[in-house]
Design a binder for these strands. Structure first.
Length: 767
DNA sequence: AGCACGCCGACT
DNA sequence: GTCGGCGTGCTC
């Protein structure tokens, strides 16, 4: 390698050529660029950057023949000998903090498990605002210059207003923000201008970290005395925290068994040692009651939610990194909070599907938390009343996974009684489609008569789910997706719940040769609301679904009204099934248990069990005995039978048996590849040729145990105008799947020309 | 992702 | 005989 081989292209790229035989020793940075590549690249670190470049920092590096500058993350630094192909990294980028090396290592583990690109993965772990060094807002400050009035004899002495400004500044040690000064002295900006002109004061811009809204004023809740079960749980966890011992602990407790109290005591133990804790929740909006309890009982709690501005997010991040905020509560991204001495991670409602990230990197928060806790040697609490079968399965066969069961409801509350109503009988007797059974109406009416509250769950939004023509037997469906349009609000529009296409609902069949009047079936929340308002005109009702609850504040206001007994009935989707605790609710009705999508995938029965159990848990808190009605077309489903006996363990072992028999997770591991293209023929061919390539790969070596299922059209075979095919890879061990995925990435097989491709390891949905 | 190289048809 | 279509492959 030498000057003789130097080409024109190399002049353009500015490569650092080293003459033949000449080596240079220096720092070499391994960089994961945030572009579409599955590997890292090495760069020489220029001397002037040597002491600023560290693992986790963002840098600008030249890529490609033209040396196009792209950002990337430094993932390793070594001292070594440059060779002639090594280019220098161009510059630093982003905030000075970068990602802590601990988080870079976590990112590498995530990237390996999920087959996501390392650069993209690391990028997702730090908030955009921190990467771009935002979150510092410029505040104008007024400062006394120190010159007094005698300097300019010609000026008149300052008036009363000006004097008050000067006095306020004296009192504030000579400087304060302009806004504050104006507000405090009740003067206009002209007073400031005059004093500036006289040279008494000056205005300077300062970069300040933006202020966070600190959640305040929540009532201080008394500390409950722990039950024997809870105390034992807390002692167990405290011991592990002190010993810096990794352990995943399933905290399995029915609703009302006091899991939150265990969280609080465990966090208090962490805080006493001056360390930090992360509490992950599925969705902030649906967690207000938990948040109120946490923030009223613990100091310095920071809450990360989607409503935060970019700069607030950056401030939160910095305060977490500085250890100022010791408890970080948040959804998915909070699992990456840069706490310097993390002592505990809690995943509340660990079974929630919303913990799975839907974009690359498609990680599951429970598993990311598991990896992080293992790296830091700290305990991980997985809290649930209905654990995911993944977690349950692990707790059963892995002795290092602890299980703490809270068997008793705190006040020894009785479990609610559950009635299952077979809607087929109901419809037969009535001779028509019935939405609300007589039992449901009767029990609801009894509750209202006794001045108690009720919740009615309908896990589908809208008014009607099937709008069709009886003449030519066609269904009103989305032009871009192969799903039916959902009619919203009795008169108005129909919309697609997948691509949000919206159109006026036609009254007659759009097929010109037919022209029959359209009919609609399949009730949603709007229909249920209409029926209940007609039946109980005096009851104060509110519908709670994503159509009525556009904002966090709206939701909070409804929850407050319901808690204050200014509402009698909540009608809603699973939004009302989770995490709410209202002592006066004595009746819960589930209008259509199958609305969880029984045909959708292998987790359907698990979701049904969870929904019924969680919803039933809303009924009969305090001293009001609860009653629950579950309406269904399939009353004999095991999931329902076990749910109405509140028997999780039997359900789990039965369902695990089934999954084992047909080889689904958690007994086996899955990876899903989805190809999509505007033309069906193209995507079918791409999926088939990918399948052939994968087959040759698994035929050859250590992947013998991997099975391929498919390719086949997805359940949702067309979405947003694109045809979709999928391919499932199935293995008995995660490690085998992981190395196969790595091979696919290395060989760059995951491509769909003209279309796009998606890899999803441990998919939560197979739609 | 972007950018270059390469192998096909349309035009000077 | 050259210009430019985009399909394919690579980026320290």
């Amino acid at each position: 390698v030498g000057a003789g081989r130097k080409t024109k292209a190399d002049d353009v790229t500015g490569r650092l050529w080293v003459e033949k035989g000449e080596g240079r020793i220096g720092l070499i940075a391994e960089v994961a660029p945030t572009i579409h590549v599955h590997r890292t690249y090495s760069y020489a670190v220029p001397d002037e950057l040597a002491n600023q470049v560290s693992v986790g920092r963002q840098v600008i590096v030249p890529i490609g023949r033209r040396g196009r500058p792209v950002t990337g993350f430094v993932v390793a630094i070594d001292r070594g000998t440059w060779d002639s192909t090594l280019r220098p990294l161009q510059n630093l980028a982003g905030g000075a903090e970068g990602l802590a090396p601990e988080l870079v290592a976590l990112g590498q583990e995530l990237s390996a498990h999920y087959g996501s690109r390392l650069g993209t993965t690391l990028k997702a772990m730090a908030p955009e605002a921190v990467r771009r060094e935002r979150g510092l807002k410029t505040v104008r400050w007024v400062r006394l210059t120190g010159r007094n009035e005698s300097d300019s004899v010609t000026d008149r002495p300052p008036g009363a207003k000006a004097r008050s400004v000067l006095e306020a500044l004296q009192a504030a040690q000579g400087s304060m923000p302009v806004r504050e000064l104006l507000a405090q002295c009740k003067v206009s900006a002209s007073v400031i201008h005059t004093l500036v002109r006289k040279g008494r004061i000056e205005v300077v811009a300062r970069k300040m970290p933006a202020e966070m809204d600190i959640r305040a004023g929540s009532p201080v809740e008394p500390s409950f005395s722990l039950t024997a079960e809870q105390r034992q749980a807390v002692e167990n966890l405290s011991g592990r925290i002190d010993r810096r011992e990794f352990a995943a602990v399933l905290l399995f407790g029915v609703s009302g068994s006091g899991k939150t109290e265990v969280y609080i005591h465990a966090i208090q133990h962490v805080l006493k040692a001056g360390r930090q804790a992360i509490l992950l929740v599925p969705e902030i909006m649906l967690t207000t009651q938990l948040l109120q309890r946490i923030s009223s009982r613990l100091p310095r709690v920071a809450v990360s939610h989607s409503g935060l501005s970019e700069s607030q997010r950056a401030v939160l991040w910095r305060r977490a990194a500085a250890g100022v905020d010791q408890v970080i509560v948040g959804t998915r991204s909070a699992v990456f909070a840069p706490c310097p001495d993390l002592g505990l991670i809690i995943v509340d409602e660990e079974q929630e599907g919303s913990y799975k990230n839907l974009r690359e990197p498609r990680f599951h928060v429970r598993d990311a938390a598991w990896m992080r806790a293992r790296r830091r040697n700290i305990p991980l609490i997985l809290g649930s009343a209905t654990p995911s079968l993944e977690t349950w399965h692990r707790s059963q066969r892995d002795p290092s996974v602890g299980t703490i069961v809270l068997r008793h409801r705190v006040l020894e509350l009785p479990m609610p009684t559950v009635h299952v109503v077979d809607m087929r009988d109901e419809c037969l007797e009535k001779g028509e489609n019935v939405v609300l059974s007589r039992v449901l109406i009767r029990l609801l009416s009894e509750s209202l008569d006794r001045n108690e509250q009720a919740m009615i769950l309908m896990n589908r939004r809208g008014f009607a789910h099937r709008v069709y023509c009886p003449g030519c037997n066609t269904r009103l469906s989305c032009p871009n997706c192969n799903v039916g349009l959902v009619m919203h609000s009795a008169s108005g529009t129909s919309l697609c719940h997948y691509c949000r296409t919206r159109m006026p609902t036609p009254t007659v069949c759009p097929n010109s040769t037919c022209g029959s009047k359209l009919v609609h079936h399949g009730a949603g929340t709007q229909k249920v609301e209409e029926l209940l308002r007609g039946r109980f005109p005096k009851a104060r009702m509110q519908r709670v679904d994503s159509d009525t609850m556009k904002h966090r504040d709206q939701y909070q206001s409804i929850i407050d009204q319901f808690a204050d007994r200014r509402l009698d009935v909540l009608i809603g989707t699973q939004m009302i099934a989770k995490g709410l605790d209202f002592p006066a609710v004595s009746f819960v009705g589930i209008v259509d248990a199958e609305a969880t999508g029984l045909a959708a995938d292998f987790r359907a029965h698990e979701r049904l069990f969870q929904l019924v159990t969680q919803t039933a848990g809303r009924a009969g808190r305090a001293d009001t005995p609860g009653r629950v009605v579950v309406q269904t077309m399939s009353p004999h489903l095991p999931a329902l039978r076990y749910a109405l006996r509140h028997d999780y363990e039997s359900f789990a072992s039965q369902e695990l048996g089934l999954r084992e028999g047909i080889g689904w997770p958690p007994v086996r591991q899955l990876a899903r590849i989805v190809l999509s293209h505007t033309r069906e023929e193209q995507v079918r061919q791409a999926a088939e040729s990918l399948c052939v390539q994968v087959r040759t790969l698994i035929g050859e070596k250590e992947f013998g145990a991997v099975e391929i299922l498919g390719p086949q059209p997805c359940v949702l075979s067309r979405l947003r105008g694109r045809y979709r095919y999928d391919l499932l890879l199935r293995a008995s061990q995660a490690a085998i799947l992981q190395s196969l995925v790595q091979r696919l990435n290395d060989a760059r097989l995951l491509r769909c020309k003209g279309g796009s491709i998606m890899l999803d390891v441990d998919p939560v949905s197979l739609v």
